Amino acid sequence: MPQIRVRFFAAAREAFGTRECSTAATTLGDLVTALNEGAGTEASTVLGRSSFLVNAIATTDRDVTLNEGDTVDVLPPFAGG
């Protein structure tokens, strides 16, 4: 199974307590499931509201295939003014 680099931003970084990690996954859906397995309530909530970039391309397709060395960015909703 491919190892995927996951980078967390803003509230996701805070909730997961790290800037990045590596995990095995073949699809974005598998990756989200794997991240949720070890996550606390806050991290799961943030993950459920986040958008994702796969190799810098936004996607909502949880069936998108991930390959060895891919990078997935977890972007929670941002507020600003």
Rank of each mutant, 00 (worst) to 15 (best):
G38F: 06
A11V: 09
G48Y: 12
F16S: 05
S44M: 07
P2M: 13
L53K: 06
T60N: 11
T59N: 04
A12W: 05
A58Q: 09
L75E: 01
G38K: 07
T33P: 01
I57P: 00
T23C: 14
R13M: 08
A34L: 08
D70K: 02
G17Q: 06
E42P: 00
A12Q: 11
D70M: 05
N36K: 14
S22D: 12
T26F: 10
L28D: 01
I4V: 13
N36F: 01
R7P: 04
A12T: 05
D73S: 14
D73G: 08
N36P: 00
G29H: 06
E37N: 11
I57Y: 08
A12D: 12
C21L: 15
D63I: 00
V32S: 01
P2T: 10
V32E: 08
V72I: 05
G69R: 03
A10M: 05
A12G: 04
R5K: 13
A34H: 10
S44V: 03
S22P: 00
L31S: 08
L31D: 01
T59H: 05
A10P: 07
V64W: 05
F9I: 04
T33W: 11
D63G: 04
A11Q: 15
F52L: 10
E68A: 09
S22R: 15
A34I: 07
T33R: 15
L53H: 04
G69H: 08
D30L: 11
F8A: 03
I57L: 10
G48C: 03
G40K: 04
T18F: 11
V6Q: 03
D61T: 02
G17E: 12
L66N: 04
G69W: 09
V6W: 10
D70T: 01
G48A: 03
D30R: 08
F16R: 01
T41P: 03
S51V: 10
P77L: 10
S50N: 09
L66Y: 10
Q3M: 14
S51M: 14
T59M: 05
L47N: 03
A58D: 02
L53T: 04
R7F: 13
G69S: 06
N55I: 05
T45I: 13
G81C: 06
D73T: 02
V64E: 03
E14H: 14
V64R: 11
T45K: 14
F16Q: 06
S50D: 07
Q3D: 13
A58W: 12
N67F: 10
